[in-house]
Computed example of a mutant assay.
Amino acid sequence: MDSRNIQYFMAVFEHLHFTKAAEKLGISQPTLSQQIRILEAELGTPLFDRIGKKVVATEAGNLLRLYGVKMLQAEQDAKDAIKELLSGERGTIRLAVLPSDLDFQLVPLFVQFKMKYPDIQLQVFSTIHVQEEVLNHKVDIGIGIQGPPDKRLIQVPLRSEPYYLYANSASELASRKEITLQELEQHSLVMYPKGFLGRDLVDKVCIIEGIELATVMETSSAISLLQLVSAGVGATIQPKELLKQHPERTDIVAIPFTGPTPVRHLELIYCTDRFISSSHRLLTDGLIDFFDGTNSTNKKRPALY
């Protein structure tokens, strides 16, 4: 099968619309339709059912999509390996990270990485669906919440980080040296909406302890949550290291929990079948060193390769 026709097929599968797929590919709709027909003839089965203006993938189409992703990635890996052999410390790395880590922790590391390796292009994507982005080959490496063991992934533990209460420095909570989750039932909170990773980690502990926390406002952005805390709207529960890179802030205080505490376990992941270039190794080493530097329990670097 021609990899170009696989790319055409993947575009149609993504959009389920021949005209939109053709526009994305920069070719005419009749040309795209012809190439899909050629691919269907080669495989001996339809890949899409065309019901009026509606396009639906057939069972064969769904199967080809699964293997098509791997075929295109294998081709790209081969090109990357040869390109690296010829060029040395070059290439492009796609990294997925959680939004709060991108906004509050990792940018200084990325600046240092770029200064040290100016010929490596780093593309960083903010997402709460880190594992899905890695498995779908939309990114090369991901840093997210630790998941169950998966044979499709290399999973490297990075850091375990407790959650703290972040409160306005002028509030009645600011003088507290520690606090319990149960006490927060009597205080105003601003939190992520239910279904977000950070909120789910907190809710899981609360459910076990029979605690029900009420929110006065919810938003999907850690930056906006801290703005609400700064404005005195309420307190929020976030990872301990959230403001480590911003010690100059005096409007917000971080208060540790005593008793049951939400904890997030971070891991670095990439697909087991991916080609890992030297540029990828440089970044993964930098990321592990960064997280090891704030986690005294990580005495030994895990074997990556």
Rank of each mutant, 00 (worst) to 15 (best):
M191N: 13
R249T: 14
I207K: 07
E185W: 02
A231W: 04
H246F: 13
I207Q: 09
E209N: 15
V216A: 08
C271Y: 03
H280W: 02
L181N: 07
C271H: 09
V233N: 06
L243D: 07
P247G: 08
L228C: 08
D273T: 08
S188F: 02
G195R: 08
P247N: 10
V233C: 05
C206Q: 09
S171P: 00
P193W: 03
E248N: 13
Q227R: 14
I179D: 04
E241N: 12
F196V: 02
H280R: 03
T215Y: 05
D203H: 09
Y270N: 04
K177M: 10
Q182A: 15
I223F: 06
S277V: 12
Q227I: 00
L201M: 06
S277H: 11
L173C: 02
E178Q: 13
A170N: 12
E241K: 11
I255S: 07
P239I: 02
M191L: 12
I252H: 04
I252V: 15
A174E: 11
H246P: 04
V205M: 01
L173G: 05
C271P: 10
P262L: 14
K240D: 11
R264N: 07
I211S: 03
S169Q: 12
S175N: 12
S277W: 11
T258D: 04
T284L: 12
A174V: 13
Q238S: 02
A174R: 09
L228V: 02
V202Q: 03
P247M: 06
Q186D: 06
H265M: 08
E183K: 09
G195E: 07
I276L: 08
I223C: 01
P262I: 10
Q227V: 01
I269D: 06
Y270I: 09
I208N: 11
A222R: 08
L201P: 00
S188Y: 04
P193F: 05
S169L: 12
S171T: 00
E218I: 02
R199A: 15
V190Y: 09
R249C: 09
P262N: 12
L201V: 06
C206R: 04
A214W: 11
C271I: 02
V263H: 10
K204L: 07
A222Q: 10
T272A: 13
P239S: 05
L283G: 03
L283D: 04
S175F: 07
E183W: 05
L282E: 07
K244F: 00
S169C: 09
K177P: 03
V233I: 15
L189I: 03
L242T: 13
A174S: 15
E172C: 03
L268H: 00
G259W: 10
E218A: 06
E178L: 11
P256A: 13
